[in-house]
Each structure stands twice: as structure tokens, then as C-alpha cells.
Design a protein around this nucleic acid. Structure first.
Lengths: 202, 202, 202, 202
DNA sequence: GATGAATGAGACTTCATTCAT
DNA sequence: GATGAATGAAGTCTCATTCAT
């Protein structure tokens, strides 16, 4: 989350320190409340939890929509960072699995704010860095297939579907069965592997 | 949907013909609008689309909640019927796969009304027939495992997670990529099979 | 209440027996529900309690208003009968007090349906027999004054105010303190008497 | 009414000036409309009359109920102030009568908003200051009895009943016969006095 | 720049009354 | 004549957003 204010959008002057703090507090409050109460939280609640007035929220985010987008961007950035790290890891065969597992972990830590990740409304992923995500995943999938760890017919679309799947299982079950999504991801990974490869689930 | 008025709840007299028609129209309108505009549609819009006044909607469904529940019950009933048929089919090894595929088809035909199927809020499935669903799925899974078509470590919880997964992929993608959910289900089914079994995907 | 259908309004043919029964049942249901739940009861509830459909209610009473009016007329008729009896009683000095007490008793047995008795909206009493009531009360007051049981400066308006008072105390308190209105009426009666007359309260 | 914003509840910061003005306007509008149209007035009408949106009303009063309560509290506070003043007056024998008369005046100036004063639903009087009212009235009654101005058998319950009575007569008659309630209160006061005391009515 | 009061469209729901069956 | 389904205006209340302080 702290990476946010470090990357001021081009052409905009960086925020004054107190303004940046308010932005930070609002985002944190939004994360917390969405996780606690689901997606129906009102902007006033978020502002109150952040300790600011609703007017301040609207100075930082022109719209409730925009605030939520910022949330998703944060999650997506985290995931993207992880993906890059996985790509740089030394074992190309493992990178894809590792990356999916870590993406799951990140999503699990942001329950309630995931509904827009890889959504129909944003078919390409999320936010501005989506093309980047597709490129890296493409590369990673190719390597995994070269290493014989993933079936040849699997496409990046399939991988994306797997992440939608994980996102959804997380949202629905992480509160009551914190591990169910991991089990489900294992299943998905098993489905991605060539039949000959030994499968270890759970 | 037509099975609805054919199964009058015990102890309740069947609806008058005009009333039954209105009920039907309301449900259809709700299905359509939820699919078109998501779960935020207002009751007045639904009533207008059905060609009745809001009061009529409330005579039939005491609450917006109740209307939505009726929607889910319809979908769930359809699925349950399908599951029973699959169980009665002659090839026990195929029944589970068949049943998942058909459940997917049903869900795909009701986009926008699925959000509560197999949800955390209804951990046992949906509606009153949920225990029935668990029982049948249990039986079906057992048979598939006996026939060597599904790994021994798979549980009904895993099967349920697969359906949550399909539900979610349908909701997110069926409008733009009508076949993606089938492809994803193939992946899931592959993941359920023992490694030795030949996998045919797509 | 049974006196109601015995007095068909001029020019209207008497009701068929089942229609009359329905009318009776509706009035009784209305009495009961108003007493139980206050003046907010809906017409559908009344119809249901009476065992008829709302359409039937509206065939009998053109308006909710009209139904309530009928209720008041019944109570007022009862009171008027009592007043006549009191006037015919042998002790003219006692008649007024007796009549007020009995009116109170009748009101107490119809809690919840009294709000329109002697109301601003019906300044002359209630219903069509109001002039009759004023006439009788006038006569009774005169006698009581002649007998020296009531102060000379008391007017029928004062007597009416006393009844409004009793009505109100009944409505507010009869459920919790069934005797409070009697006590209050005693007070009022004491106030009506010439100072010299011995007062026995409670 | 002007005493309202002068007594900010403990722990709550005082309202901003504009907010306080709106609150005042809302209360005044509510008083007026209730007096004009009875207790069925809608909140939107009140808001419109006050010149604000319905949302503003709900920011100040979380519920229609709460708004009405505020109205009653204002009237009750006025009455209570008066009662205290009467108690402090130099002639203990007169205090009770004075207090009842002044309470009547206050009620007469708030027609339409009295239905809940000394109601069954609030058996102890009204609002939070009810115990205070009972205590003061107790004291006042005792003094009046010691001074021989009120009969020994009169209780505070009787006094409360007298006020219910006055409230009711005010509500029913003040619009058409602005003085009738005074006359009725005289009657009640006469009823409270020992028989020996000279009674001057009207 | 921050605050929080105000806004007002629109949400869900009720209920006296009408009318097709 | 009876029924109860349908009506739809109106009610209470919410909440994303704007604006005076």
C-alpha cells in the first residue's frame, strides 16, 4: 500500500504530506470496512473510520467508484510485484505455480475488495498495468510448458480463469474455511499438469 | 421455471390462474433484469417490466429478499433435478462429470441470479433442498471414485468448490466469452481425475 | 349491537340474511381489532378477522371511514339508550350521575373505538341522533339542578366536556388501571356539585 | 422552544449555527403542521415546510418517531419549568392550582402535539424528566393538602388524570371553543377541593 | 484544505380501494 | 353476492455527492 503515494500520476504534483496521509487512511479504512462488512459500506462510514469528513474523501477520490478502483489497483500492484519476483526465480518450471499460490495469498489477505479483479468490466485484468500482467503471465506459461510442467493446450486465458476462480473461492469461503481456497488451487494446478506428471494434492 | 406452479407448497391452495401468471411474469422479469443490470435492480423496475404494480409484487413476495430467494430456488431446483437424472444414468463413472456439466449449463442460462448459490451465507447449498443435494452428490462422488474416475482424496467439499468456481466464471465471463466456463470446468474435471487416467481437454 | 340490522335506513331494502351476518361479523371484528391494536388496523386485517374478503367489506361499507362511523354509531346508540333509561328512573336527582357513570361503563367496554365520540369533527355529539342526546341531557341537567344536586352555573357543554374527559381517561388508562376512569369521574361529579353538598369520593 | 439549543446534551458538541437553525425550523414546522393537520403529516411535508430536504430532517432526527419525541420533550420541558416556578411561589396553597392552569396554557399553545403526554405508552409522564415531574407534583400536592386546599384522599395519580383530561379537552375543543378547557379545569379543581371550601367557578 | 451539514433522487414497502374472476 | 388479486399513490428512510462554513 505504501507504494501508492510514491508513484504520483504524471503531470500531477505530489500530494502535501497531510493530504497523502489522509489518502492512506482512507484506503486503509476502506480495506478494513469492505473486509468486515462486504461491498455495501457507505462512503460516510469509510470517512468516519478514516477519521475525516466525507468532503475530504471526495477531495481525494472524485467518486466512490474511484476509491474502490484505487483499492483494486493496490491489490493488483501487489500481485504484479509477486509475479515479477516469481518470474525471476531460478526454477522456471515452478514459477507459474508459485505465482498462482502467491496471488492467492495476496487475495486472501484482502477479502472483500476483490470483486473487480479480472472482471468482465475489465477484461484485460485490472488497472493500467494489465498489459504488463498479460505479458509476464504469457512468458511464465510458456516456460512452464517448455519445462513440461503444464499441458501444451493451456492458454493464458485459462490461467486468468484460474485466478478468477481462486478470487471467488477466497471471497466466499476464506472467513469460514481459511484453507479451502488452497485446496481448490491445488485441484486447478493438477488440472493444468500433463496427465503423466505425478500429482500431489493437499 | 414452469415446474414452479406445478409444485404447490403443502397446505397452500394453488394460486388463481391470473395470480399464477403474474407470479410467473414477475420471476421472468426479475431473471431478465438481474441478468441485464446486476443485483441492484429496483423492485419497481421489476414490477414495471412484469407489467404489474409494485403492490402486486409485494403480494406475491413479501420482500425483495423473498423474490430473490425464489429465483435461487428455481435455479437450484433445476440443478437438483438434473443431478437426480445424472444419478439415475446407467454409467456411474460418468454421472459426476455429467452432473457438473449440466449444472454449469443451467447456471449459464441464469446469469445474474447466481450470486447466492453455494455462498458463505448458505453454506449447505441453497434453499430447503440443500441436504438433498449433499446426499446425492455424496453418492455420486462415491460411485465415481469406485469406478476409478475420480481421485480418492476428493471430497464433496471439493465438488462444491468446483461449482462455486463455475458459478463465478459464468457470472464474470459468459457474456463476453460464452464458452470459457466450459473450458474451465474441463480443467477442473481433469484435476479431479487420477493422474493415470487419460485426460482429454477441450 | 344487535339493534343495528333491525333498523334499516329508510328507503333501503333490508339486507339479505347472509349479508346482514357479514355486516355483523365485520363490525365485531373491527371492534375487537381496534381494541386490541389501536386505531391503525388495516381494512384487510378487519376483513380477514371477520372471515370475509376485503371486497365484501367494501360492499357493506363504502369506505373505511364509513365502517368506523358505524362503530361509533353503535356505541352512541348504546349510550343514548342508557341515557333514556336514566331519565326515566324515579330519582331525578340521581339521573345525571347515573347516566354519566353508565356512559363511562359503555365506553370502557369499547376501548379503541372511542376517539370520535364528542369530537371537534362532530361538535354536536355523534351521528344522527346527536340532537336527541343534547335534548335529553339538557332535561336531565335541569332536573338535577332543580333537585340541588348540581350547581346552577353548570351547562350541558360542561357535561359534554366531562364525557370527553371520561372517554379520554378510558382510552389512555383502562388497559392498565381499569378503575382509574371511575375515580376520575367521581372527581368530576364532585366538581359539579354545590359546595355544600357532602362529597363522597372513591 | 428557544430553550432547546441553549441546553446542549452533555458530551455532544453544540450544533453549528446553520444546523441549529435548521433544527429549529424543523421543530417549528412540525409543531405547525401537526397542529394544522393532525398526527398523520408526512416527514416530507414537514421538511418542505421547514425549507429543507428530507435528508436534513433525518440527519437531525433519526426517525419520524424521534422528531415527535423531540416535540413532546419541548412541551414537557416547558411544563416542567412552569411547575418548578409554581413550586417556588410564595403561596403554597395556590401552587398546585397555578401549576395546573399554566400547564393547560402551555398545552393549549401546542395543540396537535400532545397525544403522547401522560399516555399509557409512557405511564410515568414523558421523556427522561418524568421522575422529576412526579417528585415535584408530589411535593406540591402535599403542601396543598397541608394548606387545606385539596382533599386528603387525592393522589398524584388523580392529578395526572386531571392533566390527561385537560390535554384531551384542549385537543378536541381549543380550535372551536378556545376557553372550554379552562372552564373544565375549573370544574376539576372544584372537585379536588374539600367540600367546605368556597368554590368559585368561571 | 478540511469539515460535516445539506441535498434529493430513489430505495423498499404499505394500504385503502377497485375490479376481474 | 363474494372473493382476493391488483392497483398505485404515498410513506419512511438512505446515501452518493455538493457546498457553505
Amino acid at each position: 500500500m505504501s507504494s501508492e503515494q510514491a508513484r504520483p500520476e504524471d503531470g500531477e504534483r505530489p500530494l502535501r504530506r497531510d493530504a497523502a496521509e489522509n489518502r492512506e487512511r482512507l484506503l486503509r479504512a476502506a480495506f478494513d470496512l469492505f473486509a468486515e462488512q462486504g461491498p455495501e459500506v457507505g462512503v460516510n462510514d469509510i470517512a468516519r473510520r478514516a477519521g475525516v469528513g466525507p468532503g475530504t474523501l471526495y477531495r481525494r477520490f472524485p467518486t466512490k467508484e474511484a476509491l474502490i478502483d484505487a483499492l483494486y489497483d493496490i491489490v493488483f500492484d501487489e500481485i504484479l510485484d509477486t509475479v515479477h519476483q516469481a518470474l525471476d526465480s531460478e526454477e522456471p518450471g515452478e514459477a507459474l505455480e508459485l505465482c498462482l499460490r502467491r496471488s492467492g495469498e495476496i487475495m486472501a489477505s484482502h477479502r472483500g475488495c476483490l470483486a473487480r479483479l479480472w472482471t468482465a468490466a475489465r477484461p484485460d485484468g485490472a488497472g493500467d498495468r494489465a498489459p504488463e500482467w498479460w505479458a509476464v503471465m504469457d512468458r511464465m506459461l510458456e516456460r512452464a510448458q517448455s519445462a513440461g510442467r503444464v499441458r501444451q493446450d493451456v492458454t493464458v486465458q485459462d490461467v486468468r480463469a484460474c485466478l478468477i476462480s481462486v478470487r471467488c473461492i477466497v471471497e466466499e469461503t476464506v472467513a469460514d474455511s481459511p484453507d479451502l481456497w488452497r485446496r481448490h488451487l491445488d485441484l486447478l494446478l493438477a488440472g493444468l499438469r500433463p496427465a503423466a506428471v505425478t500429482q500431489a494434492v493437499g
